[in-house]
Amino acid sequence: MMQLSQDLIQRYHDLIETLGPEALKTMLQEMHTIRAFEERAEQLYMQGKVHGTMHLSIGQEATAVGAANAMQEGDYLLNHHRGHGHCMAWSGDPNRMMAEFMGKETGYCRGRGGSMHIADIDANNLGANGIVAGGIPIAVGVGLSIKMRRTSQVCLVIFGDGAANEGAFHESLNMASIWALPIVFLCENNQYAMSMPVEKAFNIENISQRAAAYGLPGLTVDGNDVLAVYSAVSEAAARARRGEGATLVEAKTYRYKGHSKSDKQAYRSREEVRDWQDKRDPILRFTNLLQLAGVIDAAEATQMREHALAIIDAAVAFSEASPDPNIADIMDGVYA
């Protein structure tokens, strides 16, 4: 199953040293918390406690956690519909996220946005987007603003493989390139855009190849390897911070669950899903690596999962005790 060797330890030796045990443990804990959040989200949905739709990123936790941890305080995030993990890794409060998911007044968006639109404006998380590629041109504006304000911030924008086939992606990469904007374009390639496999939607091997067309560096990493994502995004962010412009990073990963609530998944086989779950699960892989490196032991690994479940129990309790928005306030918030 999990082919872990001294090679891996060798490869990550420096990174493990630099990050240190606390940061590494935090990353693994975040991955657990994201998964627990989404498992519960699905459960609540099945119980009819949530109306609407949701997009689960179970199986993709390494991309969210690796990327968010590579960014610095004050940086910006824009993400997409499959965004619970990104928000959580970007210091999102599970209570306020769950409350938003449940449509409560205490949620990040006062119950107006829901699962697909969680934003944490105070933390420079400019929000999840329900429109495929909708956030990418906005990242150009954020990058432009950073440049005009002469700060050392960087904007991380996360989108799916599907988004790379919208015109907005192409216009944005070009603008970011010609103006050398401080942006990390992170394409979370989970192999499918709803039912459309990447092999059918692209005539290229890697989406990162598209960077070349706009004069940007592009690279593809294993999106289920949290440290690989961390390294790639760190380097891209450092480059942006040095004023050298944007980078396109493609993280190859896999979504275990259906696209949204109503997906029969006729476009892929159960074996394919199981193969990713068994051989490449990001949480299992990172757990094994940290155990091999002596950062955690088996007991700690189990505790992390339990801790995650407790965090989510508390988040559900908080949300259930929270008030619904007041109907009388329905007209609020349209204009500034």
Binding site: G111, R112, D324, P325, I327, V334
Partner: peptide, 12 residues
């Protein structure tokens, strides 16, 4: 329709 974007919360 009211002059607002459609809210997520079921009642709203």
């Amino acid at each position: 329709g009211l002059d607002i974007p459609i809210p997520y919360n079921r009642e709203l």
